[in-house]
């Protein structure tokens, strides 16, 4: 379980996060929703210790983040984190060099799943394919938790479909996933849990199925209520 407690973060004078708390369970897909600039990415970076928080705590399975945690949790940012001049094969080699949790057979599977050629240079790939390589590098790690920042933004429709397929596959199964999005439609049926953010705080945190069952509301209904009501 990832527990985020009372995160606060200021950029200059702007209070981006003002006491954000939520939890994300293993085996569930948790979705952070909010308009752009609301601090979704900052939360993910905070969990990964890629940007310092002003205050608050983050526990991953009850423990603070350490260098070994990076074998248990990975972050897939919205842009690829590899050197553009590398080929896909070199990028995979790099991952294998440093991560014990790198699963090469899964990487190979993903490669064919996404129909990527490993001798291609990252810089020569289309936007959609670059996003797929980015996803591949994260998904091929045998980690318990996956953080994905806007995996669907700015990508063509076919790539979106392929990426969406990933969420219903064994590639994500049993892991805890946190994704951020500002646009819920495509993935509404994929997610277990929603965390609605605005003005640096969590407005509502709920399970999608429970919401449908108990109140008969879709995620968009709740969003409409929360943001406009």
């Amino acid at each position: 379980m990832i527990e985020v407690k009372e995160l606060k973060k200021k950029f200059g004078r702007k209070q981006i996060l003002n006491g954000v708390s939520f939890t994300a369970n293993k085996g569930e897909i948790t979705c952070l929703i909010g308009i752009n600039g609301v601090g979704k990415t900052t939360i993910l970076k905070g969990i990964m210790n890629l940007t310092p928080m002003n205050s608050g705590q983050i526990f991953i399975d009850g423990k603070n983040l350490s260098k070994d945690t990076y074998e248990k949790i990975t972050f897939i940012p919205d842009a690829i984190t590899m050197i553009p001049t590398m080929t896909i094969a070199q990028a995979m080699q790099f991952m294998q060099d440093y991560y014990k949790s790198w699963n090469q057979s899964r990487a190979t599977e993903l490669l064919s799943f996404f129909r990527l050629k490993q001798e291609d240079k990252i810089s020569s790939l289309s936007k959609g394919n670059t996003a797929k390589v980015n996803l591949l590098l994260g998904l091929a790690l045998d980690v318990d938790y996956l953080l994905m920042d806007e995996p669907f933004s700015g990508i063509d429709i076919f790539s979106r479909e392929q990426i969406a397929n990933v969420f219903t596959s064994h590639l994500v199964e049993d892991r805890g996933v946190i994704i951020t999005t500002h646009e819920i439609n495509d993935i509404e049926h994929l997610i277990d849990k929603v965390v609605l953010l605005d003005n640096g705080i969590v407005l509502k945190e709920f399970s999608t199925e429970e919401m449908r069952e108990d109140e008969g509301k879709s995620v968009v209904d709740v969003m409409r209520e929360v943001y406009q009501g």
């Binding site: 890629l50 260098k67 972050f75 690829i80 440093y98």
Partner: peptide, 16 residues
């Protein structure tokens, strides 16, 4: 650039 390799470097399971 957009391809910020530093993400990768800082997420390596080794002391920064």
């Amino acid at each position: 650039g957009k391809n910020t390799f530093i993400y990768r470097l800082f997420m390596l399971p080794t002391a920064r």
